[in-house]
């Protein structure tokens, strides 16, 4: 058991991993269903991101705490039940805080259960690391997820309605680009973000290649 556990120290990297290098949405492409379904406004995106972060952190903590007591054969089923418990809690909490928000998110709060990112982190990280380290990592992953949702929700709301978080930005002359808040907009905006990141990555690699080429020429 002890060999399976990696370095017990909490480093900055265990938090920042999820923010950028292994961003769950832009790099690992996990948990796509809520990413596309609820990001038609920035507010929905923020609420969804926070709810998912809560489930991620709470289930990460519990899974990591219980990992040595869970038999290997039934671990996935156990993780799912743990996740479903926390999702039920957050479902009732959102219902109590804001009924409007609850209605606009609809069944997608309950569908957090089948967000593959959460199960993936429980299996790949929380079950192999200490509770506090898993919590830090889950916080980073949640922040990265929320950031990605905001990127999508912000762009879609801005183009589709001309507003951001409900505040009108472009004035009455703006012709809303309605397709952006409709389903195809979700696919197109996420596709565009991924293209942008791929393009940046390719440009950086080419620059590095050019630099190393110059160095060999100089030698």
């Amino acid at each position: 058991m002890s060999q399976r556990r990696s370095d017990p120290h909490i480093t900055w990297d265990s938090f920042s991993e999820g923010l950028w290098r292994n961003n769950p949405v832009f790099v690992m492409l996990l948990g796509m269903c809520p990413v596309l379904a609820v990001t038609n406004s920035a507010m929905n995106a923020l609420a969804m991101g926070l709810a998912t972060t809560f489930v991620l952190v709470a289930s990460g903590y519990l899974v990591s705490l219980l990992s040595r007591f869970i038999p290997r054969q039934v671990r996935i089923a156990t993780y799912i039940v743990i996740i479903a418990t926390f999702v039920t809690i957050i479902d009732y909490v959102i219902q109590a805080i804001s009924l409007d928000l609850y209605n606009s998110l609809g069944a997608f709060i309950q569908l957090i259960v089948v967000n593959c990112m959460i199960l993936g982190r429980a299996e790949a990280y929380a079950s192999k690391n200490r509770p506090m380290k898993s919590v830090v990592n889950a916080l980073g992953m949640g922040a990265g997820f929320t950031f990605a949702l905001l990127c999508l929700g912000g762009v879609r709301e801005l183009l589709g309605t001309g507003a951001l978080f409900g505040f009108d930005l472009f004035g009455p002359q703006f012709q809303p680009w309605v397709v952006m808040v409709l389903p195809p907009g979700g696919f197109l905006v996420l596709g565009a973000w991924l293209l942008l990141f791929d393009w940046l990555k390719q440009r950086r690699e080419q620059k590095q290649l050019a630099i190393s080429g110059e160095q060999t020429n100089a030698v």
Partner: peptide, 19 residues
Amino acid sequence: PSVTQGAALSLMLGGLLSL
């Protein structure tokens, strides 16, 4: 184009189908 290989292209296709 080499940039469009991978998930981005699949998502664009999904967008067109959805449209």
